[in-house]
């Protein structure tokens, strides 16, 4: 099976002598569903950031989607990010843009015209049950709805990998359930690799998954 993420002796830190992740080695198969858990401040979000190139590895090697993340060039990083979908706890929607345009963002970046991307956007908005909100702006929507928009945006360009950082951290039970269903759907129907950073694995999850836990800077897989 192809590996989407390969980490070998990966060390991550913001400052030189404050290692957050120390010499971690792990790999993630294409099409798998992965949870990364750990206590607050354990470094799970830092690990996720390294997967989309927001921080560079301090040591070891990290390969995402076949692209080496060590000393990656801006153009290569942009290319990689055009094949990744990211979901954040705080949604990171563009407030001045309509819901429809927010979902369209990855397609705009990839150079698709509105005519070409429109059917895909309508399909996604219908999938996340937000067709009636298409013309509204993010602040007009509830937290759950905003996260559904972020999910639709993450799926818009058919990414090889979706990275989600505490996607349900700010949501109520019902909205959380909707988000987990959407992630499961992307994994089972589109075979998209999903990596979710969360405090604990939700009990409602019904797809087979891998579980990594971070403790004291070390990553280990939980069977």
């Amino acid at each position: 099976m192809d590996k989407v993420i390969i980490a070998e002796n990966l060390s991550l830190s913001y400052k030189e002598f404050e290692t957050i992740i120390s010499k971690a080695s792990f790999s993630i198969d294409a099409g798998s569903f992965v949870f990364i858990t750990g206590a607050s401040g354990s470094g799970k979000s830092t690990l996720l950031k390294s997967l989309y190139g927001a921080i560079e590895p301090r040591g070891g090697q990290l390969v995402v989607g076949g692209v080496k993340m060590n000393k990656i060039s801006t153009s290569k990083l942009n290319f990689l990010r055009r094949h990744i979908g990211i979901v954040f706890q705080d949604y990171k929607l563009i407030k001045e843009w309509t819901i429809e345009k927010n979902v369209m963002l990855p397609l705009i970046i990839s150079g698709y015209t509105k005519e070409v991307s429109d059917p895909q956007i309508q399909k996604l908005l219908s999938h996340v049950k937000l067709t009636h909100q298409a013309g509204k702006y993010p602040p007009e929507l509830s937290g759950g709805e905003q996260q559904r928009v972020a999910m639709a945006r993450a799926l818009a360009h058919n990414p090889i990998l979706i990275l989600a950082d505490e996607p349900t951290g700010n949501l109520d039970e019902y909205s959380s359930e909707v988000i987990w269903n959407l992630l499961e759907g992307a994994n089972t129907q589109l075979k998209t690799t999903i990596v979710v950073v969360t405090h604990r694995v939700p009990s409602s999850i019904s797809v087979p998954y891998k579980h990594f836990h971070i403790e004291m800077g070390n990553i280990h897989e939980i069977a």
Binding site: R81, R82, I86, K92, L93, I94, I108
Partner: peptide
């Protein structure tokens, strides 16, 4: 800054 950093997260080049 916020909009530009969100666009950067999705791989938008500087000019875009």
């Amino acid at each position: 800054a916020e909009r530009m950093s969100i666009m950067a997260l999705f791989g938008a080049p500087v000019w875009l």
